[in-house]
Design a protein around this nucleic acid. Sequence first.
DNA 1: TCCTAGCGCTTTTTT
DNA 2: AGCGCTAGGA
Length: 793
Amino acid sequence: MTDPLSLDDDFTPRPGGLAARARASVATPQPYLSGLNPEQRRAVEATDGPVLVLAGAGTGKTRVLTTRIAHLIASGLAYPSQILAVTFTNKAAREMKERIGHLLGGVAEGMPWLGTFHAIGTKILRRHAELVGLRSDFTILDTDDQLRLMRQVIQAEGIDEKRWPARALAAFIDGWKNRGLTPDKVPSGEAAAFAAGRGAKLYAFYQARLKQLNAADFGDLLLENLRLFREHPDVLMGYQERFRYILVDEYQDTNVAQYLWLRLLAQGRRNVACVGDDDQSIYGWRGAEVDNILRFEHDFPGATVVRLEQNYRSTGHILASASHLIAHNTDRLGKTLHTEDEEGEKVTLTGAWDSEEEARLIGEEIEALQAKGHSLADIAVLVRISAQMREIEDRFLTLGLPYRVIGGPRFYERLEIRDALAYLRCVANPADDLAFERILNTPKRGLGDATLEVLHRFARAKSIPLMQAARLLVETDELKPKPRGALRDLSTSFARWAAQVDAMKHNELAEMVLEESGYTEMWQKERTAESAGRLENLKELVRSMEEFPDLAGFLEHVSLVMEMIDDDATERVSIMTLHGAKGLEFDTVFLPGWEEGLFPNQRALDESGKAGLEEERRLAYVGITRARRRAKIMFASNRRIHGMWQSTIPSRFVDELPESHVEVTEAPASFGGYGGSRFDRMTPFGSSYNTPGWQRAQERTRQGGGSGGSGGGFGERDAGSYRPPGRKSGPMLLEGELVAKSTGASSAFAQGQRVFHIKFGNGTVAAVDGNKLTIDFDKAGRKMVLDSFVQAA
DNA sequence: TCCTAGCGCTTTTTT
DNA sequence: AGCGCTAGGA
C-alpha cells in the first residue's frame, strides 16, 4: 500500500508542488493518516455532515473508524467525550478502544461514549431513569428472566399457556421493541396475532411489571431511550449538543429502534458517519433492516458516500469466488472488490458421501496443514447451524485435534452461574423478585410451589417485594411449621448478607453467600464430573469479581457483557457458525454443509422467500470472505437431520461459484452426488483401492449398473482402511461444469420404477426431474435423490 | 414436594 | 438423536 501523502523526511517538496500543498494543508503531522488508501482517507477526512462508508469485506472498515476518531481528536474537532461511537458487540467496542489507544497513545480510556448500543443506552437511561418510571439502579433482565416474567403475565391473564407460549409472546414483544413500538403503538393487526387480540394488552402488562420490578429488558435499553428523548426534548437536546460526532459500526445490522435512536441524536449536528456493508447483512431475522443502509442517502441528504473496495485480506481466487456468488443477489448497492494480492490457491469444492466423511476429511486436511507448519489458530470451520458442530467435534476429539467452539453456551448463561448471580442480585437488590424466585428452592429447602403461591399472594396484597413479604410472612401462621422455618432461615440469611455489602469485599461476600446458602454444598454432594466443572465455574465467577469495584458494578457488567474473556493460549482450530464468524478472518476456512435445505436453510426459504434466500447467500459470502489464503467448501450426500439420515443434494450456491476460480477435488471414497457416471473416468484402477466394499462396487459397475451411474455399494465405509495413503485428491471438472450442476439430461429412471438406494433401501420413483429423483422409499419415506445414488432394483 | 417418564420440538444470536 | 419441559405418580 503506497500513499502519495506519506513523505519521507528527507524529501524536500518542490515549492508549490502537490506534495508541498498536501503538507501545507496538514498543519500538524498526522502519522495516523499514513498508510490509508485514498478512499479510506476520504472516509476519515470527510468530517462535516453525514457520511456513509460502504466497506466491503476486508477493506479496512475498523481501520477507517478508528482512524476517523483519532483524526477528530487529534485535529481538535472534538474532545473524546464529545464523540459517540456505537458498535453491536462488546468485542467490537473493545477492539476499537484498543486500536484508538494505539493510534493516539493511550487516550482511549477517555472515550466514555464508545460502546455497544445497549451499553450506551443503559448509561443514558441511568442518568434519567426517573423520567421514564425507573430508578437509576434498575436491574437489567436477561432472556431467562424475561421469559419467566412473561409466563407470569400470561398466567395472571388466565390465558392457556399451551396455546400461547411465553416464548411466542417474547418473540412478538421483542419484535415490537426492535421496531421502536411501545404498547400503544402496536398495529392492531399484529396485536391480534397473539392470544386472540390480547397481544398489546399483555405487552402493556409486561411493561408495567417491569416498572414495578424496577427492571428493564434489553429492548427497553433502547426503547426507553426513545421515549425519554421524545418526551423530554431538553434531555435530547443536551445529548445532541454533546455529541459533535457520531460513528456507527456495522450499520447494515441496525434495527428500526436503533435507527430512530441514531436519527434523534444525529439531528442536531448531522455529523454522523455510518460504516457498513449491505452484502454482509445477515441479521434480518432478528430485526435488522438492510433498508437502513440502502436508504441512508435519502435519510441524510447530501451525504458523502465512500466505497471501500480494495480488499486487503484475501487472495484473488477467494475474492473472485465470493464476488461472483454475491452478484446473484439483486437487492444490493453493489461493490466491486479488488485485491492486489496474488491469485493464490483456488477455492476447493469437495463432495463427501455423508457428514461423517465430511468431518473426517476436514480432520485430515487440518492434520496435513498442521504437518506443513500451519498454526491451528489460523484455521476455522464455519457451519450453518450449531447442530453441524457435533460431528466435527467428535472427529476432532478422536484425532486429538485441539479445537474451540466459539459462541457456544456462554459463561453467564450456565445454570450454576445464573443461580449464583441470582443470590448476588438478591443481596444487591432485595426487590429483585425474579432472582428471589429463582433461588427460593435452590438448593432444595422444601419451599415448593405451594409456598411460593402463598408468598406471591401475600406480596401482591401488600404491594411489596417477595423478600419483604417473606420476612413478614414468617411472623404469621399462614405457613406450615416446616416451610415457615425454612423461609425464616433464608430471610434472615439475606438480611445478614445485605448488611455486609458495604463492609466486606464483594468477592469475599459472594463466596460467603454461596457457602452459607448451601449452594456450593449442593454441587459438592453430587460428585460427578459435571458438578466438579460447575464448582470450578463458581470459583471462576468469584475470581472474576475482583476486577470490578463493587457488587453493583459487577452485576452491570454481567448483564451487558455476557461473555468472559478466554485467556487460554493453546492454539486451537475454531469451530463456529457463519453468523459467529462475521468480522473474523483466518488463513484457512472450511465451509462444510453446502447442501440444499441446510444451506440455504429451508426454514429461511419458507419463512422469508427471496429475501431469505438472499440473506442466506450473504451468509455464504461472509463465509468465503473470512478466508485469507484457503477456502474449502464441502457438501455431503447424506446427512443426519433430527436423528434421521437424509439424502441431500448440493447447494444452489455451489452452482453459483465461478468455475475458473474453483477446483473440484475428489473425496476418495465418496461416490454419488455427482451428475454423471464419473466412476468410469475416475476410477484409479491399479491403485490401492482394495477394500471389500470397493471391490464389490467395481463388480457391480462392470455388470453395468445403469446409465445413470451406479453408486450402489460405495457407501461401504470401513473407517480408516479405504483412504489410500499418499494419494492426492485430484481435480475433477466434468465437461466444464461444476459437479453439482444438474445435467439437464433426463434420467434413465422412470416414474413408478423400483429402485435401490444404499442408505434408504428399496423404493419407488415418484417423480423425475432431470437427474433428480423423488423416491418413496419403503422404509425411509419420500426423499429427493440424485439418480447416481440409486440403481434399478 | 420431588422424581421421572414421556412428549414435542429442533436456524442463525447480541445485548 | 437429544434436550427441555410438563404432567402425573410416589
